[in-house]
């Protein structure tokens, strides 16, 4: 089973919610920066709001390799 690479005896909230919270904060920051600044803020917003798409692709690619 490729599933539980790191099985934990009990849950670890950081392992479960850490990733989504981090990405959530990043996305929100990206959504707001594009609204507030036109120059560099735009580039940051593309990275920040696009991060979930890229990371999903990365998870998908990694799954194929195992």
């Amino acid at each position: 089973m490729t599933a539980a690479r790191k099985p934990r005896s009990s849950g670890n909230w950081r392992a479960v919610y850490g990733g989504p919270i981090l990405l959530g904060v990043l996305s929100t920051a990206g959504l707001l920066t594009a609204l507030l600044s036109e120059g560099a803020g735009r580039y940051f917003s593309w990275i920040a709001v696009g991060a979930p798409v890229v990371i999903t692709a990365w998870f998908f690619a990694r799954r194929r390799r195992t």
Binding site: M1, T2, A3, A4, P7, N12, A15, G18, I55, R62
Partner: peptide
């Protein structure tokens, strides 16, 4: 809670 973030199983 027992899976690491981004786990994709094909069971």
């Amino acid at each position: 809670r027992r899976l690491s973030f981004g786990t994709l199983r094909d069971k």
